[in-house]
Every structure is written in C-alpha cells, then in structure tokens.
Design a protein around this nucleic acid. Sequence first.
DNA 1: TTGAACTTGTAAAAGAATGTAAATGGAACC
DNA 2: GGTTCCATTTACATTCTTTTACAAGTTCAA
Lengths: 233, 233
Amino acid sequence: MTPHIVVIEDDITTRRRLSTALRKQLYRVSEAENADVMEGILARDPADLLLVDIGLEGKDGLTITREQRSLSNVGIILLTSRDDQIDRIVGLEMGADDYVTKPFDYRELLARVKGLLVRVMENRSAQAAQEPRTRFGDWTLDTSRRRLDNRDGRVEPLTRAEYELLHALVKTPGVALSRDRLLDLIQQRRWASDSRTIDVLIGRLRKKIEADPSRPDWIITVYGEGYLFASES
Amino acid sequence: MTPHIVVIEDDITTRRRLSTALRKQLYRVSEAENADVMEGILARDPADLLLVDIGLEGKDGLTITREQRSLSNVGIILLTSRDDQIDRIVGLEMGADDYVTKPFDYRELLARVKGLLVRVMENRSAQAAQEPRTRFGDWTLDTSRRRLDNRDGRVEPLTRAEYELLHALVKTPGVALSRDRLLDLIQQRRWASDSRTIDVLIGRLRKKIEADPSRPDWIITVYGEGYLFASES
DNA sequence: TTGAACTTGTAAAAGAATGTAAATGGAACC
DNA sequence: GGTTCCATTTACATTCTTTTACAAGTTCAA
C-alpha cells in the first residue's frame, strides 16, 4: 500500500506546493489547514507520516505533535521558519522525528520524507511480529504469512484480498461491517460505486472456510447492512 | 588502520592549524572548505570523525550534522564560537557527539578527539558483533560475510542483488515492501517504470531458500503491493 | 399471499498483476 | 581477443481482482 501523508499547514500556497511535490513521488497525500480537519482525515484513513507547520492558528504544531505521538507511532516532520530554533528543539523533545526549514529545498525534503517512512515501516515490522494469531473453529489465521492453517496441519492459501477481508472481519467479531467499509480495507482500485467485489470475495472465503458454504457458520450476511463475523460460541 | 578525520571549516587559517595539530598525532586528516568537498572526500574514504564548523557558508554545520548522523555513526565534533550557545544545543540534539569552542585550547581539543575516536571504534565493533546474522527456518543470513548458510553446514551462494534483496526483506519482517522500494534498496535504479527485475530475483531467491518455491513459507507475495518476509517461526 | 422492488449469491469473462524460462547485454576477469 | 557471471528485459503462462449478468433470496405494501 502506498504510504499516506497528511500535510497540516494553514498557508494554502505552501500546502499546495508540498502536496504536489509529494504526489509526484506517488505518495497518497491529504491536506489539512488545521488540527480539526486533520483529525477528520486521520479518522477515515490513518497516516504514515505527518508534515506539521509549527506555527498554526488554533491548535499549534507542537501540541499536535505531542497529541499524535501519544496516540500512535506515526512519523512526524515539523515545518519551521529559520527563526524558531527554540521551537525546533522543543518539537524534537515532544517526539517529532525531524524538521525542515522554510523555504524548502524540495530535494532535501523528499529525502527526509523517504528516510522517515523507511524508519516508520521498520518500526511497524517489529509490531507486526507480535500480532497475535486468531483462532476460530478448526482454523488459525496466520498473520505473519497471511494464510489459514487448519488444525489438521493443512494450509489454505489466501489471496491478498481474501486475507485483508477475513482479517478485517475477524478483528471485529459480532459487528456487522458495511460493504463500503470493507471495500475501503481491501481497495486496490477505488473508482467503483456499485461494486459486487465484496460479495464475490465473501463467496470465495466461505468456500474455503465454511463446512457448508450455503449455510455459513462464521461469515454471516446481515441483509441490508453487510457481513459480520460470528463471535466464538 | 589509522583513524580518518575530516575537518570542515571555511577559514583557511583555522583549518590548517587544526589539520597540522591532528597530523602530529598521526591521524589521517582531510580538509574541506564546504559540504560539497566533504562529500567528495567521504565518498572516496569514509571518515571516523568529523570536525565541523557550525557557521559554514552554504550548507551549515547543523545541517551537515543531521545529514551525516542519519547516514552513519561517524563521530561528530562541532566547532563553535563562544556566542552560539543555542546552536550548540541544537547540534547535540541533532546528534553531534561533542563540541569545542573557539579559540581552541589544543590540548583539550586533542583530548576530546581521542576520547570520541575510542567511543566510535567501540561502538562500531559492538554493532558488528551485535546482529551479524539473522536466522529463519534452516537458514542463517550472515550479514558480515554476505552469505547464506544452511543448518546442515551447506553454503548457498547469493549474487549481489539476491543478497541485497534478501537482506532488505529480512530486515523488515511482516511489512510488505513495494517493488519500487526494493529496487531502491538494491541500488541499480534504471528509470524503467515497468521493470520485472524484482520479480525475477524473488523467483531465484525462492528457488534457493524455499522448500517448495511455488508455495513459499518466507517470501510472500502481496498482490498489488509487493513482497513481505514472514515474521518469526 | 402475492408480486414489485430491492438485496445477495455466484459462474464466467474481462482486466491486471505476478511467475518464470529464455534471451540480451554489460561489466569484470582472464 | 574471449569467457564468465549476472542483472535486466522479453514473452508468455498463470493467478488474482473486478465486473458482468443473471439467478435466487428477502422485504413489505397491498
């Protein structure tokens, strides 16, 4: 998945320039002019990296840094002026990973973004290694190899989409998830509004994990709402 | 091997004095009047220690510090004036190891250089000893010799690209790496956007390390995203 | 209960991405 | 010069995702 970067900057010109430069590198970029907008974006699509202007109106960059750092291990780069040296130090102490000084040298900026994204990924991999496997019935979802292991030792390979979908369901047992929400978690190509993709994939998953795919025990259809994963009885 | 020290200082008098003093101690000393010259020197002969004037024209000492620190664990001593206290603090935040104040007390300066070189060398050997190999399944990737050893003592030779690729994957288990990033990491960037190089190399690696290359246990394809290395057992 | 309007199931085809054997070309070595 | 090695490209087979098309199921007002 391409990394998601959020630019939080109130000056529209600067913000646009940054976004454009980043999009050229094929990053997924969202723009926010203040902390509220940023929070909305993060709620829908968590970021891998934040570029935060230190001198925002309202909730300022240092506050955002502290808040976000306490919530996740997202990468944070501060956008600073030549003359707020003290703020930079404070920023690093609050948990920012790096900073760049206005006016930007874009080559340098892109290098730092790339470098930090690498570090964020590495960090994430340490966590990925600890993610628990989930069991249901005779099956164990092996999150490190993205496949299903049966109790009898048989391995059932899952395709990417099947794995993502099952993972999403298994993570929130007992909750019906809409097709829209599920599509978000699977999306390879986003541009289809009335898509049957999820239904087809659900069908394939059922064939793989259900004893009788036409009378599923695990992946339950909720008419008009979506699908839910049965909680272990 | 005698330690290599690079002095980055634009004032020629100061630079010469420093070099002379250091050469008397039998260090190998290079001189650079700016960041560009320094980079040229480092490309040919990596340094053990940098002495960096904080108030350089062009790319300044703090920037150099930050850049070099992100690239290696070279020792860095900042050369500062009495009156840039803030810069010293920032410098240390950026990862400089120490600083000395102009005008220099040469006995003190040489003491600091000697002390830091000891630490740099110790650190380097500690790192080399720390994680020189990664194990997975029956295999051990020996990063100091750049080769792959089987538990039964057999050595599986890897080509340069195969080694770089496997190393990149093994370093971040549990995270899917895009073909783009992998191409970057194996350093043979040739602006072909639709390159199949990575796929071919992955295929060759699988033939070498997987029990059944068509159903890999370690190098897992994530359709539409890239490849990931399975974490842990 | 019936049937129109809707939602879901699914086989099959179309559209993309990946696997891989073989060919190509470039660099290092003799 | 020739030879070897190996990263890269090529070309085609295979696999995966999404769409399509229609069958089957569900809801609810009449």
